[in-house]
Design a protein around this nucleic acid. Structure first.
Lengths: 136, 136
DNA sequence: CGGGATCCACGGCGATACTG
DNA sequence: CAGTATCGCCGTGGATCCCG
């Protein structure tokens, strides 16, 4: 194989990069993280928690379109992975506050990088898609 | 393919980062790109094409576990979005070569950033998960 | 060789109803 | 308020067979 890329050259395009490295155990790390956070709602939850903690229904209202069940499920999943912290205040009616952990905050950076690519190239994506659909 | 059209826009969400911004044109850009390449195989296809063009069955062999159908479907999807180019050589038996477009290569950077985060934090993820599961 | 067509299992996700 | 429980749709993806 022709991995002739020298690192430290600026853009890390070609790789011997650890992110893609398959196996070792369990396969590609990227797939592992996408399997955790690549679902419909996780990213949006993380985004909406970036500015600070939110209670359940406040969070629900801030993510338009999410069902109660999916917010519960998504939060459990994120909590399980240590990306979101859950704090219960034992009052009546109960108050439950969700916040990002440090790990959760650290994920926002890479996600944001991807987001900026998306923002810059969404037009190109749509154009390519339209062109492809036009002739098929 | 999920397209996930959900009216997430309009809300006055303070967004310090453009990647998350929902600009009235179909929602969060991140979700848009994840809807395209967030599936099981797209990332792995892109990875395996980074080092150079590959023919169908060579690509198939390089991605362990992928079915013929899913490779076809995934390649079509990537081609549709302008991330992968398909070149047919009219010989017999036919030779079809797939390669990354410039757009496809440019996506590898952000993906790689995410991958490095994944590689660095997979242990923490698994630990958190194990701890969570232990007490529930 | 590089697919297309078909069938089927599984799981994500929404809708709805109920609860402490 | 913050969930849990149940149901059912439907999209994803594997398996298999066929074709130019």
């Amino acid at each position: 194989m022709t991995i002739s890329t020298k690192p430290q050259d600026g853009a890390p395009l070609l790789s011997t990069s650890p992110g893609f490295a398959s196996d070792g155990d369990g396969g590609c790390p990227i797939r592992e993280v996408l399997d955790r956070v690549g679902d419909t709602w996780s990213i949006l939850v993380i985004f909406n928690l970036q500015q600070g903690p939110l209670r359940f229904n406040a969070l629900r209202r801030s993510i338009e379109g999410i069902s109660q069940r999916m917010l519960t499920v998504t939060l459990r999943s994120l909590e399980r992975d240590g990306l979101v912290a859950r704090r219960v205040r034992p009052v009546s009616p109960p108050e439950v506050e969700y916040s990002l952990t440090d790990l959760g905050h650290s994920l926002a950076g890479p996600i944001d990088t991807l987001g900026q690519w998306a923002a810059q190239n969404r037009a190109a994506l749509r154009a390519a898609r339209a062109a492809f659909d036009a002739e098929n």
